[in-house]
Amino acid sequence: MTAPEITTATPADRPRVIASLVAAFTKDPVLRYLFPDEVTYPLHAAAFFGHLFDKRVHKGTVWTIEGGASVAIWEPPAADNQSPENDLPAQLPTDALARVHAYDEAVHSALPAAPFWYLGVLGTHPDKAGRRWGHAVMRAGLRRAAADGLPAVLETSNTANVELYRRAGWQVLRVVAAPVPTWIMHQPAR
């Protein structure tokens, strides 16, 4: 089996990235907490993922396979560890924005104070699942963190993912109980 080609995303990849992430996170506990309505989930999740993509694509920290079939959206270290989601898209309804802010505040308060690379989103379209593409795009960001001599951090609310990440070298740093049980995980600086 040949290794997939990993590319740095461009704005042209946006539609495929968003479609893949909306499909990949349909049953994710956090996304369903944020956007619980079945009818509006696709629209609101697309706005949310589009916002995350748009904020990071020009930083060169979004890696994809097949132009977005699998994607890792990384946030480089922030000098002041400010929350990256403080300017969410206006097209989200007020109640969804309140849930996003509550979740972000709870998780942000549990993140390390020292600089780190943050894996904000990792997903593969369900039609392409099982090929280990998520691991491949994740490693692109891990290489950047290692080159900077910094740890990497992520969070997951999917209990099955905790063990997958552990097998990939991540360690549980802490658990946030509410508003959604969430594991903060890290890989030490290398």
Score class of each variant (00 low, 15 high):
residue 123 G to I: 00
residue 172 V to I: 13
residue 143 R to E: 14
residue 169 G to C: 06
residue 64 T to V: 15
residue 68 G to V: 01
residue 116 F to R: 11
residue 182 T to Q: 06
residue 120 G to P: 13
residue 2 T to N: 13
residue 130 G to Q: 07
residue 59 K to Q: 10
residue 38 E to Q: 08
residue 12 A to T: 07
residue 164 L to D: 00
residue 142 L to Q: 14
residue 173 L to V: 15
residue 127 D to V: 01
residue 92 L to C: 11
residue 49 F to S: 05
residue 56 R to H: 13
residue 50 G to V: 03
residue 114 A to M: 02
residue 178 A to P: 04
residue 136 A to I: 11
residue 113 A to W: 08
residue 111 L to W: 05
residue 4 P to H: 05
residue 115 P to S: 02
residue 53 F to W: 13
residue 99 R to P: 10
residue 99 R to F: 08
residue 174 R to F: 06
residue 45 A to K: 14
residue 64 T to H: 01
residue 143 R to P: 01
residue 171 Q to N: 15
residue 16 R to H: 04
residue 61 T to V: 02
residue 14 R to P: 05
residue 8 T to V: 12
residue 144 R to A: 15
residue 69 A to H: 05
residue 4 P to R: 08
residue 72 A to T: 05
residue 70 S to T: 13
residue 39 V to D: 08
residue 17 V to N: 03
residue 15 P to H: 08
residue 71 V to R: 02
residue 170 W to V: 10
residue 159 T to S: 11
residue 137 V to M: 04
residue 107 V to F: 05
residue 3 A to C: 01
residue 66 E to M: 05
residue 74 W to P: 14
residue 79 A to I: 03
residue 152 A to K: 11
residue 78 A to D: 13
residue 128 K to I: 00
residue 162 V to G: 12
residue 169 G to H: 06
residue 106 A to V: 15
residue 38 E to F: 03
residue 129 A to S: 11
residue 186 H to M: 13
residue 4 P to V: 00
residue 125 H to T: 08
